[in-house]
């Protein structure tokens, strides 16, 4: 069983600003309250190549309490994820892929996010495309209730992505104000 879904969102801000906001999303302490499921984010590696591609790997620790019957089987409500990001500044693209590296014997979650300039307004807007795949391992203790767990998991992801967008919008506004302040 695999549960997959995709979401699309348009930011009415330029790509530069939106991708800057994406880096700040988990780093700014004032977002901790809204994104309370994110416990810790650490940069594990960062490489810049001469053509303007920036590669980053971050470790993300997520507090993901499931329904009680899941917690009982899994035995922990902390999940470690690794996020790999490639920013190609010349072609103006940012791609993030996040996978869980713990609890893998129960579940595999992969989330892909892309930020590109919006085709209708490339200098002013940014399109965000997000794809999430959730898979309960067929032979795990959760297999018999796979469908239910995947559904619950997907609902949680949708809620959390809404929170993420709210934070992104706020940072974009802040960056916009900051840049117009600098321009004055």
């Amino acid at each position: 069983m695999v549960k997959a879904y995709s979401q699309e969102y348009v930011y009415k801000h330029p790509w530069d600003r939106v991708t800057s906001a994406s880096w700040r999303k988990f780093a700014d302490p004032e977002n901790k309250r809204v994104l309370s499921h994110i416990l810790e984010v650490d940069t594990l590696s960062r490489k810049l190549d001469p053509t303007g591609k920036l590669y980053t790997t971050r470790a993300i620790t997520v507090h993901a309490p499931g329904p009680w019957f899941v917690s009982k089987i899994v035995g922990q409500d902390i999940c470690h994820c690794v996020e790999s990001t490639v920013v190609d500044v010349q072609s103006r693209s940012m791609q993030l892929t996040t996978r869980n590296i713990s609890l893998q014997k129960f579940i595999e979650v992969e989330e892909k996010i892309r930020y590109d300039p919006h085709p209708d307004n490339p200098t002013g807007w940014t399109i965000c495309q997000q794809e999430t795949r959730i898979r309960i391992k067929p032979l795990s203790a959760l297999a018999s209730m796979a469908e239910k767990v995947e559904q619950k998991c997907a609902e949680k992801f949708v809620q959390n992505s809404a929170k993420g967008r709210e934070v992104m919008e706020r940072i974009c506004k802040y960056l916009e104000a900051e840049s117009s302040g600098l321009a004055l």
Binding site: T19, S20, A27, G52, L54, L175
Partner: peptide, 20 residues
């Protein structure tokens, strides 16, 4: 925090503006 601040500034003020 010190590194993130530095990186975030570099990213939005230099990297995306072509000084990579």
């Amino acid at each position: 925090a010190a590194y993130n601040n530095c990186f975030n500034r570099w990213y939005s003020e230099k990297f995306v503006k072509g000084q990579w």
